[in-house]
């Protein structure tokens, strides 16, 4: 799903003493099939931005085009339902939104609500369970009997079963242990590729942005601050530090390596193995042979 923001502003409580401009004149384009990371500090406008992607908020000014759908300030609520069918949002701590008496009912609630045929939902269920690694033995149990990590998987399954064209992830791994984090992130990436989906990830983790995204958008004080290819953006240390963001650890390390050894190592997404080889070669080079 192609997404275009055209001079989008969002003002909360407009024309009151509490007026607050959360987004200001934001323009960008996301091409269909890309994996975009949105980064910025608390209060930078990230959450306001993603709430526009499924029409929970409408722009106060400007225009958003998503696929064939156009979202503007005067868009009617009933038209917005068409957009919500195509956009799945995994909010922060999505397990807090579980409510049904069984896991099966909870997962099926979304598509049922949008009038998807029961047979179609039943067909999709096994694949979704497999993606999030939940056993079908659990289906009849209450979601509230599960551990936090498993509850998270149920909540995510409830979004995936909608088969959205655009998947929006708001810090989907917060609070999970390292293995759980990696499993969930790898799963989203695999589905992104398999389903030819457009994915938008809101994250504080520069490492995740570097590893999974092909485009990053940096927000600051409601404005688009930087955007581009992750490696190119993350090389701009000074610009990032100005808005209180750190560069990913690997880039940070290579920078200090260059300072110590006076030898630059160009980072273009090498694995740890490949980097170790380059570093080993320079270290073993020794003083004399320089």
């Amino acid at each position: 799903m192609d997404i275009t923001f055209d001079k989008v502003s969002h003002i909360y409580q407009k024309n009151t003493p509490f007026e607050y401009k959360a987004l200001e004149d934001v323009s960008f384009h996301i091409s269909s099939g890309s994996y975009v990371a949105i980064i910025g500090h608390t209060g930078s406008g990230k959450s306001t931005l993603i709430q526009h992607l499924n029409g929970l908020l409408k722009p106060t000014e400007g225009k958003i085009q998503m696929g064939n759908f156009v979202l503007t300030a005067d868009k009617k609520q009933k038209d917005i339902m068409k957009l919500r069918k195509q956009v799945g949002v995994v909010f922060q701590y999505p397990e807090h939104q579980l409510f049904e008496e069984s896991i099966e009912k909870d997962i099926k609630f979304g598509p049922q609500n949008f009038g998807v045929e029961p047979e179609v939902i039943n067909q999709r269920l096994p694949e979704v369970l497999k993606s999030v690694q939940l056993s079908d033995q659990l289906l009849s149990r209450s979601p509230f009997d599960l551990s936090g990590g498993q509850m998270r998987r149920v909540a995510i399954a409830g979004v995936l079963i909608m088969e959205p064209n655009l998947l929006v992830l708001d810090e989907p791994t917060a609070g999970l242990d390292p293995r759980g984090q990696k499993e969930i992130m790898d799963m989203f990436y695999r589905l992104h590729k398999e389903k030819n989906r457009t994915t938008v990830l809101v994250t504080h983790s520069m490492e995740d942005a570097l590893q999974y995204a092909d485009h990053v958008i940096i927000m600051d004080h409601g404005k688009l601050y930087m955007e581009g290819n992750p490696i190119e953006v993350f090389r701009q240390r000074d610009a990032l530090q100005k808005v209180g963001l750190d560069v990913p650890e690997v880039i940070d390390f290579l920078d200090s390596f260059e300072k110590t050894f006076q030898k630059p190592i160009d980072y273009h997404g090498q694995s740890m193995d490949e980097l170790a080889e380059v570093i080993a070669r320079i270290v073993e080079g020794g003083h004399q042979r320089e």
């Binding site: 740890m272 980097l275 270290v283």
Partner: peptide, 17 residues
Amino acid sequence: GLDTPFVTQLSRHLNKL
């Protein structure tokens, strides 16, 4: 199911080399 810091991981790879 736990992880180690970047420096630990890189050191492991360097040790192997």
